[in-house]
């Protein structure tokens, strides 16, 4: 009679580790993509308001928002690099 049960589980454990790592990396990347989208929306919204309302220091505010987009983009690139390296 043939034995159909899997007896060697070491490969399965490695597969589980690989899956957990990739799923978490994917989750973090998705979080940062959302963050980047929020930053872009915020920038566009501020520019939209500034078209109709001038309060002073408007360019400084727009620069701050643009800076936030750059930070979000850098964080996303860094996470992707770390995911590739690890």
């Amino acid at each position: 009679m043939n034995n159909y049960f899997i007896t060697d589980l070491s490969g399965l454990s490695e597969l589980a580790n690989w899956l957990i790592n990739n799923v978490i990396d994917f989750g973090l990347v998705i979080l940062l993509v959302f963050n980047l989208m929020a930053s872009i929306f915020l920038y566009l919204r501020v520019k939209d308001i500034q078209r109709s309302l001038t309060l002073g220091k408007d360019s400084l505010l727009a620069m701050l928002m643009a800076g936030n987009i750059i930070v979000s983009l850098l964080a996303l690139v860094l996470i992707l690099l770390l995911a590739v390296v690890s």
Partner: peptide
Amino acid sequence: VLKLTIVILTWGIT
């Protein structure tokens, strides 16, 4: 730990 720190700080700033 490094990855999670980056995500938390980026979201915090936004």
